[in-house]
Design a protein around this nucleic acid. Structure first.
Lengths: 297, 297
DNA sequence: CACATCCATAACCGCAGGTTATCGATGCAT
DNA sequence: ATGCATCGATAACCTGCGGTTATGGATGTG
């Protein structure tokens, strides 16, 4: 029998969320569509996968069996995809590098230049990744390495090479009352609404709402964003304030946004990340070397 | 990225056959449909998988990378599917057993009876398998075990328990000139057209055209069939003659078909087959025990 | 008792995946 | 040299599937 891996992901979402409705919103899908798909999966397999009740969907025996075996399928496919994309990169002499927001700041260009010196016939393609699923492009091999801010979800699946560390500052609307102050203690901002990353990003989200400096003090979420532009707009809009790397003041300067230094919160580190599975290609190795040299300077 | 496993099988077929046209016929698909699908796979992956030429499709680097990783994906899915079906069988107390044509002849019922004695609350469901892909239902877990005639393709992936051996005879149209004779030497039939199984069935097909008794003498194919009914019709129709187990004369007696003893060709053995991967369920173990006892009698 | 929540159903729409028919290019055999 | 077979690409068309919105019915819950 054949399946679309999409169906498997649907199934996994329902199994994890426990209700069709929640899974549907998480998948950006309408609930009836999910109902149909799950039912179809059950029909094709000739098995009842969920026990329906008024309080949600509970896995049956066969459902649990599927849930256990699904990851192996999806992982195998991810590996296959990565293998193809890597080979394609090799064939067309293009190294695809992902980045979030400002990549490695002022070091980005020197790294690329150093790489180009070693491989003049290659091109480096930079691709922006959504921070809604920062490691997705890496896992599927869409990019071979990425400039990431640590921590990020599933970080343990990747090699990391730290490139730079910079203090964090706070970003707020230019007309915000707090812009009166020239500098802040983070502790004074605990009750401000924050612009946050999606909950699914786990440690990444926590880091950028300053969870480690809150001592359990709950956070108020002003908005949830997945892209630099959405993020800037939300801040300018006054939906809340946000922690940002100091370099944001250079790379994302706007008249409607003010950046202020903040104390009492850890710095932010940018690292180059690449998958642990498989061996890096020769070209990627050269890129890593280039990055290492530049980091040492 | 998501794929349908069907697409992967398409790709594999093209990679193996080397031309779209051949792959399309093997897949029972029109050539333009395949063209489209392969192109789409390439688009989705952003890679050229084949080098097109006037003499066919040759794998590129990325194509070869995919070809290598595909089996892992499909195997993982087969395992997942089997796990679900097994669990479903357990949950609904139904043991699904596949068979080709007459199953294990007169032993079928005693085996099932012996199983039912041990598990009165269970049902045994017999499902006919196409001999076009005799092991497919077994591999995907659609049935948990099957009565098979050995040899069959991918036989090495299964445990086998031999149940009975019977001589083979020759089947022909009732109005065939050869029905004059009462018994045959197989050597006298080498130039007769034979009704055969699809080429993809390998050793199975060879066995039933008596390849091992031909000493390299080529076979003339009168028709290719995948089902007992097609097979009987083709024989009755005079498209050719066929080797058959002796029991066919009992289980497939028809006025328009004559069965005659034949010498000089090996006997046929029926075995119970079940997958090597994974541990058989308790119910299946009981069934195997029942079969063992009955075979010993 | 009103309401929120959850899944199922119905009606609808666009597109993907299949079909047949046909074409142009190439290589092989007469 | 010419004619035929074979290969992949393209076009036009049809059906069904995967999604949508709107709505219903059942079951807890303030």
């Amino acid at each position: 029998m054949d399946v679309d891996t999409r169906l498997l992901r649907y199934f996994r979402a329902v199994a994890e969320e426990g209700t069709l409705t929640k899974a549907a919103t998480r998948l950006y899908l309408s609930q009836p569509a999910l109902t149909k798909q799950i039912r179809q999966l059950e029909d094709q397999l000739g098995a009842t996968l969920f026990e329906r009740s008024k309080s949600g969907m509970a896995l049956t025996g066969p459902g649990a069996a599927l849930a256990e075996s699904i990851d192996a399928v999806l992982d195998a496919w991810d590996r296959a995809e990565r293998a193809v994309r890597t080979a394609e990169s090799e064939a067309s002499k293009v190294l695809r590098i992902g980045f979030l927001a400002s990549a490695a700041n002022e070091k980005t260009q020197p790294i690329i230049a150093a790489f180009r010196e070693r491989r003049p016939d290659w091109r480096v393609e930079l691709r922006q990744a959504s921070w809604g699923a920062p490691a997705a492009a890496l896992a599927s091999g869409e990019v071979e390495a990425a400039f990431m801010r640590v921590p990020f979800p599933n970080q343990e699946d990747f090699h990391l090479l730290e490139l730079l560390t910079e203090p964090r500052c706070v970003a707020m609307a230019a007309n915000h009352a707090l812009t009166q102050e020239q500098t802040f203690a983070f502790a004074a901002l605990l009750d401000e609404p924050f612009i946050a990353a999606p909950a699914a990003t786990g440690a990444f989200r926590d880091h950028w709402i300053g969870a480690e400096a809150r001592g359990g003090h709950p956070v108020k979420i002003g908005a949830i964003t997945e892209q630099p532009d959405d993020w800037l707009t939300a801040i300018a809009n006054g939906d809340g304030i946000a922690l940002a790397p100091e370099s944001a003041a250079r790379y994302y300067a706007r008249p409607d946004i003010a950046y202020r230094p903040v104390t009492g919160v850890a710095a932010s580190t940018v690292a180059l990340a690449w998958p642990r599975t498989g061996r890096p290609t020769a070209a990627l190795t050269d890129f890593i070397t280039a990055a290492t040299r530049t980091a040492d300077r």
